[in-house]
Amino acid sequence: MNPDSHSKDLNPAQDRLMDALLAEDARLGKGRDQELINSILLNTVNAPVDITRHQPFARPPIFTTADWLKMAAAVFAIASLSVVWLNKSGAGKTQASPKQKEIFFVVNYLDDHQAGPAQPRVDRKVLLSAAPGEKRFLPVTSNVTKSVSTFEFAQIDLAPPSTEFGPSINDLSFLSANKTSFKVAANATTHTTEGKVVYSGDVKLKHNDFELTADSLVMDKPGDSSEVPLFKALNATLVQRTGAYQTAADAISFDPVSGELVAKGVHHLLDHGVEQVLENQALIVVFNANQYIIEERYASPNR
């Protein structure tokens, strides 16, 4: 190593990386950070079940079986005494007293008043979950609804009230532009009971950073944040908004855990307009931040 060679100084980021490497080497050398490993394992594979899963303390029963038996005996005794007293006093005979009639009339009146005019029966479960004026749909396995090919959720007008049960296109208002940083358009949408949305036919997903087109796309229902949820698109193309990168692949998925777009079975990869030479089509290309990584098949394919 010649210190007088004409090496340029490192980029600040690379300098920072070497600084981190030297600091780590000075801290532990070639060994492991056993304390960190133990801590990770205690929170993962060695996590005690009782700690990770909260279970409220079991409360001791207020009444034991013996208490219940005593109370049952007492009730029985009181009931028996009441019967004896009623028999002695002549109550409970076939002729009802005027007072009893009056009570019966009042109860009847109240029932009629509450019922009001006859109305069709409504499923109580549906009413319970619906806020006033809110439209709710019964859960069904799936229901396909057509929409125009240039459909964008942020712009769609509300359709007239649907006469059929099941989700309509209006259900997808959770994807509105106000709430999320992306839009999806497709010829058809399907809801599944697992809470996923299936888009099929000329699918377009527009995001601030990229635009994706696909034959079909399955997406988890977005949460409250503006983050893109997990999705998988088949026979898809991905174009970076600035056009720097473009790729066509058998499948492109977004992994919100690592924040990466993963293209599998890549047919083309254009980098600033230059086709990249790919050795085979089983390549996985991972896009993150401002870069992509060609990830060679690392795991056994038959696993």
Binding site: S253, S258, E260, V286, E295, E296, Y298, A299
Partner: peptide, 13 residues
């Protein structure tokens, strides 16, 4: 996805 590289995935996290 088991066909992917675990180290890349964890680095992403």
């Amino acid at each position: 996805d088991v066909t992917r590289d675990f180290s890349t995935w964890v680095r992403g996290i």
